[in-house]
Amino acid sequence: MSLLAILVAGADFALTKLFDALYVRVRTGQTGGEINQYLAMPQTPAMLIMGNSRARYQVDPDSFVVPTYSLCHAGMGQVFQTGLLDVLRLHKKLPPAILLHVDFEEYMDADNTEDVGNLRYYYHKVPSITSEINGISKYERVKYLFQFYRYNGRTINTLKNYLQSINYSYAGNGYQKSPPVLGDTATFRMPAPSPVNPRVHRANLRHLESFIKRCKSNQVKLLCFTSPYLSPHSYAATAARSIDSLLRTQHVPYLNVAAHTPPILMHHAKLWQDGDHLNELGATCLSHELAQWSAPFLRANASAPLATGSH
């Protein structure tokens, strides 16, 4: 039994070292490759776009007045974005400005911190990530007694992405275009399912508050935006009030596109991928809107205090 324990510990160490060596060379895929790609860039962009799929597929970095890069991860909530910010800080890759997408939907559910598990490579490397992961359940610490657990569920992806990264070079800006498809546009306008008694869960706002706090302490200019819906979301107004109030209090420039959607987007279903996502045609309109709005903030001195107003 003790021999087994010693061998398991040794194998755990060796396997983790092997996969660590592979992981840092990975440059593709959403399981860390895209983060590594950004970290490996020789120059930090003037602005970084962060958020979930509604930022990834809807905002073209080339539209902005400063060099911009998109480091968005589909399906990842604010807890992930806050953890990612700490990863960028660890690697001294914080940009002068961040354009953060705020998604109302994730504030309507109970605090869900499981997304931070996708940054588990940084467990024991970034204290805030370690702390959030430990908070997922009281047994997380036990699982991470195995260092190799940091690759749980991504062993094959790491190997695959490593092989794909061997002769890979990327010169893009992180933007993922979503080409128009022929879809049943009538369904886009169907009301989205609404949670029972919609209300903003305060616990979820703490991740956004942490993000703002970290940006302030690191002199990163933060701009926030929401994106439009074609499907009516009955809870959007409830969420908007809380988010609006928080960002106003924190003096964060904020463009609530969900509340003030350009009419062209609301009248042309062909600009949409589905009820919540614009395709690349719609993304051009949204990007243009965001670029115009953000230009005054970005032209200002990056070291100046955070801009106020513009809500």
């Binding site: 087994l4 194998a11 755990d12 749980n152 569920g153």
Partner: peptide, 15 residues
Amino acid sequence: SMALIFLIVGFGVSG
């Protein structure tokens, strides 16, 4: 046992 332990740690679905 070693093979099973690392298959579970590496591939097992947590929760």
